[in-house]
Design a protein around this nucleic acid. Structure first.
Lengths: 188, 188
DNA sequence: TTTGTATTAGTAGCAGGTACTAAAAATAAG
DNA sequence: CTTATTTTTAGTACCTGCTACTAATACAAA
């Protein structure tokens, strides 16, 4: 509908497709008031793949991403583990984990990292029943690399007490004590 | 390749497609050692849409989902809010939030719900600096609906103390006290 | 007017299907 | 063993959203 010259159109096209990857060439051509062929040429020039490829890309990408704070059982990369004793994990933060305005990493990512490491060091099916003394000492900014260290400080029957500390460049940004309880899974 | 009867094949097909939505009918037919037509009939019977629809579904679903525990600023649905006083949010849990083995909802979802509600009730740019007295009293099972209630109990300068309780059917499953600090954003 | 770029039109072919018809094969029932 | 019924294959026409290619047309500056 709008009459814009090629250059503007190319920029706009890139932006529109980035924002909404679910548009067909036909819909795009209507949006720009040009022919389908022109849109195809534009995509070619901009190296924008066809709709189906774009959709597939979004699907596969998020398929992995949801698992990374969703279905995955450990947030971060486990780099050292001594069962029932200690463990270390790494997490590279990025903009998807941060508030857009403040660029600060959302607390629940840090918490998830700590919690999942605490559960990983215990050699059993466990449930978290209590957490104490959590302190976020410095806000974590997007892009910073987190190092979490967990230590099992006490085991009392089926109860485990785990301390987790998270650092950025040797500065502690988080600490917390987790109480975990081993559970049976007989009814399965 | 395997010779299984129809009924088994239907169950297996459902499971395989659920696990990996990116398989064409042709690939599926090879996997089962039957013709493409048979796979089509099976999909019809099971109401499984075609590959492209499945991929699109994954793409659009996760397009939203990543925002819901990723970029979104509130986990759950905010249903009531009195700024600097109180707030209520709802979260319908599902299998993607739970451990596969135990069907228990992962703690960081519960924590994320509480934390984001705590931040939402404060009318400022805030950072969490401390959390205390967290108790998970009963494990939450997938499918249960969580109701979070937050209450601002004290404001001291730029510090806010917020209590959050989460219930399932009037049974408390979580409680925690959050300490938040308002921050300036001059350098933006 | 010529030259060049931008745009549009049109065709063949592809992947991964739907929707339909029909035949062949396997299984169950009499 | 022979029907009857179910299950599986085969085959065709058509669909969407393209790619890849050729050719014609519009617009603009030299």
């Amino acid at each position: 509908m709008k009459k814009v010259k090629k250059k503007e159109r190319l920029e706009l096209l890139q932006k529109i497709v980035d924002e909404d990857p679910f548009l067909t060439d036909e819909e795009l051509s209507e949006r720009f008031g040009v022919s389908i062929q022109t849109i195809r040429l534009d995509r070619l020039k901009l190296n924008i793949p066809e709709l189906r490829e774009r959709v597939k890309h979004v699907a596969t990408e998020n398929y992995g991403k949801v698992r990374s704070i969703g279905a995955s059982e450990i947030v971060g990369e486990l780099i050292d583990l001594e069962l029932n004793k200690s463990g270390i994990s790494l997490l590279q933060t990025d903009k998807t984990m941060a508030f857009q305005k403040t660029k600060m990493v959302m607390g629940h990512y840090i918490f998830a990292m700590a919690e999942s490491l605490a559960m990983a060091v215990i050699d059993a099916n466990v449930a978290i029943t209590g957490v104490a003394n959590i302190k976020y000492r410095v806000p974590v900014m997007e892009g910073q690399k987190l190092v979490a260290k967990a230590e099992v400080v006490r085991i009392r029957g089926s109860e485990y007490f785990v301390h987790v500390k998270i650092n950025v460049n040797n500065d502690q940004v988080f600490r917390g004590k987790f109480i975990l309880v081993a559970i049976d899974l007989k009814e399965d």
